[in-house]
Design a protein around this nucleic acid. Sequence first.
DNA 1: AGTGCTGGTCTCTTTTCGAGACCACCAACA
DNA 2: TGTTGGTGGTCTCGAAAAGAGACCAGCACT
Lengths: 135, 135
Amino acid sequence: MDGKIVNLKTKLEIYKAMTDGANFADCPVRDVIHGINGKWSPLLVMALAEKPYRFGELRRLVPDISQRMLTQTLHELQRDGYVHREVFPTKPPSVEYSLTDLGRSMFVPLYQLVQWAELNHEAVREARASFDARI
Amino acid sequence: MDGKIVNLKTKLEIYKAMTDGANFADCPVRDVIHGINGKWSPLLVMALAEKPYRFGELRRLVPDISQRMLTQTLHELQRDGYVHREVFPTKPPSVEYSLTDLGRSMFVPLYQLVQWAELNHEAVREARASFDARI
DNA sequence: AGTGCTGGTCTCTTTTCGAGACCACCAACA
DNA sequence: TGTTGGTGGTCTCGAAAAGAGACCAGCACT
C-alpha cells in the first residue's frame, strides 16, 4: 500500500508537471484517460470485448445512444487504437468493429472498474440518498 | 478468461435491460461509472488518495481547473460518498476534503486504469499519429 | 414504383464547461 | 482606519459538447 502511494506521488507530478504547459494533451495520463472516459466509450468497449459487432448491431444493443454519438465514439476509439474497423464488400456494405490487442489490454483494468461499480452501486446509491436527505 | 466473458454478458444485459426504461440513472453500472467518469473526478480522487487536501491546496495543485469545476466536482464526489468534507472553525474557516472508505475502495480499480494509461500512453499516441497520417 | 436495410452525415436545440468577476468574512498591517 | 491578503465559495456569460431527428446514396426484394 505504501508503495502505491509513493508511485502515486510520481503520477501526481506527471499530472502537475504538465499543467503549466497550458496544453491539456501535454499530460499523457490525462490524455489517455480522457479518451477512455467519454460518456459512451466504456460501454462500447465492454460490448466489443464480448465479440465484434456491426454498426447497426451496436445501435440496437445500446438503444439510447444517438447515431451521431455512436459514429463519433467509435471513430475516437479507432483513432486511439482500441478498435479496429473493417468494411466488408457485401451488397449493402457492412462494417464490423472489433477490439485490437491494445483495446483488449485496456479492457482488463476497465473491467475491474466496471466490476467495482456493479458490486458497489448500492453503497453509492445510499450515499446519494442520505446526502440528498440532509438538504 | 471465459468466465470473464460470461460475466460480461451479464453486465451487458444490465446495461441493456435498463435502457428501455428511458432513464439513464436506471442502469446502476452506468450511473456509477458516470459519477467516476467526469473530466476532473479521476484526477481529484488520485490527489485525495495521497492525503487529505484543503480547497485552496487542490486549486493550487491542479492549476488548470476552474474554481467552479473544482467546487462542483468535489460536491459530486461527496454526494456519491467518495469524499468527506469537513469544515474546521478556524478564523477564516478552512475546509478539508478526504477520501472515505468507499472512495479508497474505488481508488483501487481506478488506480489500475491510471497505471495502464501511464504504461501505454506511448502506444496510444502512436496509434493516433498513424491514424491521422492515413488521412 | 415503393419499401426496407446498410452506415452514415447535417442541422438544430439543449446541456455542460471554462474564464473570470464578484462576495462575505476576518487578520494583519500601515 | 482604511487597505490588503487569504479563506471558500457563488454568479454570469460565451464557448464547446451532446442529443434528437431529418436526410442521404446504394442496392435488394416485392
